[in-house]
Simulated assay, not measured.
Amino acid sequence: MLYWALVFLVVALVAGALGFGGIASASAGIAQILFFIFLVLFAVSLIMGFVRRR
Protein backbone atom coordinates (compact mmCIF):
# COMPACT_ATOMS: atom_id res chain seq x y z
CA MET A 1 0.00 0.00 0.00
CA LEU A 2 2.91 2.30 0.68
CA TYR A 3 4.08 1.60 -2.88
CA TRP A 4 0.78 2.83 -4.32
CA ALA A 5 0.87 5.94 -2.13
CA LEU A 6 4.30 6.75 -3.52
CA VAL A 7 3.13 6.08 -7.08
CA PHE A 8 0.23 8.51 -6.70
CA LEU A 9 2.58 11.04 -5.10
CA VAL A 10 4.90 10.86 -8.12
CA VAL A 11 1.93 11.18 -10.48
CA ALA A 12 0.78 14.25 -8.55
CA LEU A 13 4.23 15.83 -8.72
CA VAL A 14 4.56 15.22 -12.47
CA ALA A 15 1.04 16.45 -13.17
CA GLY A 16 1.64 19.54 -11.05
CA ALA A 17 4.89 20.29 -12.86
CA LEU A 18 3.13 20.02 -16.22
CA GLY A 19 0.27 22.28 -15.16
CA PHE A 20 -2.54 19.76 -14.71
CA GLY A 21 -3.90 21.09 -11.41
CA GLY A 22 -7.00 18.91 -11.19
CA ILE A 23 -5.15 15.68 -11.78
CA ALA A 24 -2.39 16.75 -9.40
CA SER A 25 -4.78 17.52 -6.56
CA ALA A 26 -6.73 14.29 -7.09
CA SER A 27 -3.56 12.20 -7.12
CA ALA A 28 -2.20 13.96 -4.06
CA GLY A 29 -5.47 13.31 -2.22
CA ILE A 30 -5.40 9.63 -3.10
CA ALA A 31 -1.75 9.38 -2.05
CA GLN A 32 -2.55 11.02 1.28
CA ILE A 33 -5.48 8.68 1.97
CA LEU A 34 -3.43 5.60 1.08
CA PHE A 35 -0.56 6.77 3.28
CA PHE A 36 -2.82 7.26 6.30
CA ILE A 37 -4.42 3.85 5.75
CA PHE A 38 -0.91 2.39 5.61
CA LEU A 39 -0.02 4.10 8.90
CA VAL A 40 -3.14 2.80 10.62
CA LEU A 41 -2.56 -0.76 9.41
CA PHE A 42 1.10 -0.56 10.41
CA ALA A 43 0.18 0.62 13.92
CA VAL A 44 -2.41 -2.15 14.29
CA SER A 45 0.16 -4.69 13.11
CA LEU A 46 2.69 -3.47 15.67
CA ILE A 47 0.15 -3.57 18.49
CA MET A 48 -0.99 -7.08 17.53
CA GLY A 49 2.64 -8.21 17.42
CA PHE A 50 3.30 -6.89 20.92
CA VAL A 51 0.10 -8.47 22.26
CA ARG A 52 0.92 -11.89 20.78
CA ARG A 53 4.41 -11.93 22.30
CA ARG A 54 3.03 -11.75 25.82
Rank of each mutant, 00 (worst) to 15 (best):
F50I: 09
G19H: 09
V14M: 02
A15N: 07
F35A: 15
L18T: 09
L9Y: 08
I33Q: 01
G49S: 02
F50N: 05
V7T: 12
G16L: 03
A12V: 08
L46G: 09
G29L: 11
F20H: 04
F42P: 02
M48W: 03
L18R: 11
S27A: 14
A43Y: 14
Y3P: 03
A15Y: 04
L13V: 10
L39C: 12
R54W: 12
I23Y: 04
A15V: 04
L2S: 10
L9P: 01
I37E: 00
G16T: 06
L2G: 14
L46R: 12
S45F: 13
R54C: 12
I37T: 03
I47S: 05
L6D: 09
F38Y: 11
F20C: 03
L41P: 11
G16W: 03
L41Y: 15
L39Q: 14
V11K: 12
L2M: 12
I37C: 04
A24Q: 07
G49R: 15
I23R: 04
F20L: 04
L18S: 04
Q32A: 12
F38S: 00
R53K: 11
G22C: 04
S27P: 03
G16Y: 00
M1S: 11
R52C: 04
G22Y: 07
L2V: 15
L46E: 08
A12H: 01
F8H: 11
A15M: 09
I47K: 15
G29V: 13
F42H: 14
G22E: 06
A15E: 07
R53D: 06
V7I: 10
V7Y: 07
Y3M: 06
I47T: 15
F38P: 00
L18K: 05
F36T: 15
I33A: 14
L41V: 15
V51N: 07
V40H: 13
L9T: 09
V44R: 15
F36L: 14
R53Y: 02
G21A: 11
A17T: 13
V7R: 07
V10R: 09
